[in-house]
Design a protein around this nucleic acid. Structure first.
Lengths: 219, 219
DNA sequence: ACTAACATGTAAAGCGTTACATGATTTA
DNA sequence: TAAATCATGTAACGCTTTACATGTTAGT
């Protein structure tokens, strides 16, 4: 069974509801748009491929998905009629592969989302800053150690983003992803610099505490 | 007897398990540490107060909590024995207020967390960059519009962080929060600058597309 | 012989937001 | 008289991660 001619396309029921009540008219969550967005570049991708592409570019500024989330997003998108899939038997006796493509409706939907969405401030969850913010609970010099480790992490990201951006050179269809990877490179450089500034501020704070009585005379 | 006047302290059962099996030995989620951290500065705070303090500082780099989350976190922390609460009757016929304080066990726990947690890369979810990344779906100049609106948002954040940092001046116990607010100020300035660089890159991309054939000769 | 990569999924549990519910006081 | 502030919570829902389940092939 399961694929006479490597085809067996499934679930193109989406779009129009079949029952009396609408099955799901709620807007898709942002991560769905990210997956659909990935499919708007390439022809056919498996869940496994999608994870790789996401790690290669989206992970720097948006999202580092798990396999399980990729697969459930694909199911959702298929239910909405935004992607179709077909099963591809593997030559090597390995498990069959299911590859996904964006539909015309899907392409229209991402385009509308990308054009019409509101400009919202980025969401940042900075655990390092949370710990510095609790500096009164740290031991002497521990804030410094945390910041230096954070800088090392930022350096790694700079290099990764640079490599990935270079990998995108020459491909005209990746012009925008390349732009964003360049942005990411600079972003993590900025993180590094900001940590440097904060280290200087910590020094100043320590100096003020060693020599009290010099507190701003104006206040 | 732990308070007889306007007291009614509840839920100090935490710490040691009462049944045969341990009720919850899982580590607290990061947002719990954020709430406990807030309580490590001030003596007694209500859920409402906590929200205000969180908006004032944590919201810039970590978390902008909802009331419902604050209240459920407080319940969790009370169950763990990290905070205690007492009810304070309001003079004005308004609903009673419940104020929370950190316990010694709580203070020890946050301290250990702040000192021992791993340095993890910050989590960033940048919707603006996601849309630029999908630039091939946008209309001409739309990427630019998005970036400029993003810059305006960043400017607002710079001003807010500056004001809040100034508000923290002179209070020695807020030295570290003030440091982090200064960091936030510079962070949003950097966001602004990065958007400026990207606008320049977009111009360059447009020029390359108008005058083709100049593509890097070395490749 | 082991590890990494390929390949896809289910189940459970926790995190977090949004909507709902209630009501007094103060300020415009 | 309308809105904002003070004040606390429940319920529902949806997003996300983690653990589990399974098996082949290629490289070290």
């Amino acid at each position: 069974m399961r694929g006479a001619m490597a085809q067996e396309s499934r679930g193109t029921d989406g779009g129009a509801p079949k029952g009396g009540r609408t099955p799901e008219r709620r807007p898709l969550p942002p991560t769905s748009w990210a997956v659909l967005g990935l499919l708007s570049f390439e022809q056919e991708l498996s869940g496994y491929d999608l994870k790789k592409w996401a790690d290669w570019s989206l992970s720097f500024f948006y999202w580092s998905p798990s396999f399980s989330q990729i697969y459930s997003e694909l199911k959702r998108l298929e239910g909405a009629g935004y992607v179709t899939s077909r099963s591809v038997p593997q030559a090597t006796g390995n498990r069959d592969k299911r590859v996904y493509s964006i539909t015309e409706a899907g392409r229209r939907a991402v385009r509308e989302w990308a054009r019409g969405a509101a400009v919202e401030p980025p969401v940042l969850k900075h655990g390092v800053m949370l710990r510095i913010w609790l500096g009164h609970l740290l031991e002497a010099d521990q804030a410094r150690d945390i910041l230096r480790e954070h800088q090392a992490n930022a350096d790694k990201m700079v290099h990764r983003a640079r490599l990935d951006a270079e990998g995108a050179e020459g491909e005209p269809s990746w012009a925008y992803p390349r732009l964003v990877l360049r942005w990411a490179e600079r972003y993590y450089e900025a993180e590094r610099r900001l940590a440097e500034d904060m280290l200087a501020d910590l020094d100043e704070l320590a100096r003020e505490r060693e020599a009290p009585g010099h507190g701003e005379p104006g206040a």
